[in-house]
């Protein structure tokens, strides 16, 4: 089998250009905004929450409206005791519907408002738990994006290093062999990538960012667990926290048994002697 041979000129440059283009599309900062795609950050989460609130609010108000209409049907016209309430409900429903149809901007404003309001009422605890979960998710996604940006920079700089290495080889054509096939170029890219990454990976800023992302992932998981455990308790199903309590108790008991056994063995030894 033969592999394509080349003196390492145009096709290598074409490859580097291709890689740059892919990086630009995939991960470089600003690429998402340019393509018009949704950002991965927090506002989407709040927007989703806002939409859910809108849907729930509309359903709630529709229920009340039906109740009001049924009640009004049993009274004389113009003397509906719930007429005032019905008007109010209609006004509220109009507001909710307006918010829903006003487009993303209004929804976002609403969601922002919701996110800043203190949790209230019967669902206060659940709301707070969900809000914390969403905040943790937003934080995680933000940091993940930051890390992706760093990785994209590593790849970009690796390409710059590849170019420099190729120039050097060309300059020392007699002493150094040129790039002859795709795999050689690939291996050079790997070598350059590892060199650039090693420098970045040892830097304090990278260590901090990676740890921040890890810590954000941990917080997100803890928030998810809190929401899940609440649901499990609702169905009287065991939770991890309860198992932890049991395991801790078992461990303590085991240690106490071991201590007592040691004391017993020592006492028996004393008796024999």
């Amino acid at each position: 089998m033969t592999e394509s041979k080349n003196d390492g000129s145009d096709w290598i440059q074409a490859w580097i250009q291709q890689q740059r283009e892919q990086l630009r599309r995939a991960g470089m900062p600003g690429a998402d905004a340019a393509s018009g795609e949704k950002s991965a950050g927090g506002p989407d989460q709040y927007r989703d929450l806002g939409m859910r609130w809108l849907e729930a609010g509309q359903a709630y108000l529709q229920g009340w409206q039906q109740f009001a209409q049924r009640s009004a049907g049993g009274s004389a016209a113009g003397e509906t005791p719930l007429k005032f309430g019905e008007e109010m409900l209609n006004a509220w429903q109009g507001t909710w519907a307006g918010a829903a149809s006003a487009g993303e901007g209004a929804t976002r404003q609403f969601a922002d408002l919701i996110s800043r309001l203190p949790a209230l009422g019967l669902a206060r605890e659940q709301t707070e738990a969900w809000r914390e979960l969403l905040a943790a998710q937003a934080e995680y996604q933000h940091l993940e994006q930051e890390l992706r940006t760093v990785w994209a920079k590593v790849q970009t700089e690796a390409l710059v290093m590849v170019e420099a290495a190729i120039r050097e080889r060309r300059a020392k054509q007699d002493a150094m062999p040129g790039i002859e096939d795709y795999r050689e170029l690939y291996n050079l890219w790997v070598e350059c990538g590892e060199k650039v990454f090693a420098q970045v990976a040892h830097s304090e800023s990278y260590c901090k960012l990676q740890a921040q992302l890890g810590n954000a992932a941990i917080r997100l998981k803890l928030r998810q667990q809190a929401v899940l455990e609440r649901a499990l308790k609702h169905f009287d199903l065991p939770t991890r926290s309860e198992l932890n309590t049991v395991h801790k108790q078992m461990r303590e008991l085991r240690e106490r048994v071991a201590t007592l056994e040691a004391q017993l063995a020592a006492a028996r030894g004393e008796e024999r002697s």
Partner: peptide
């Protein structure tokens, strides 16, 4: 683009 055909081949 210059080199694109060669790149495709390799």
């Amino acid at each position: 683009t210059p080199g694109s055909a060669e790149l495709a081949a390799v």
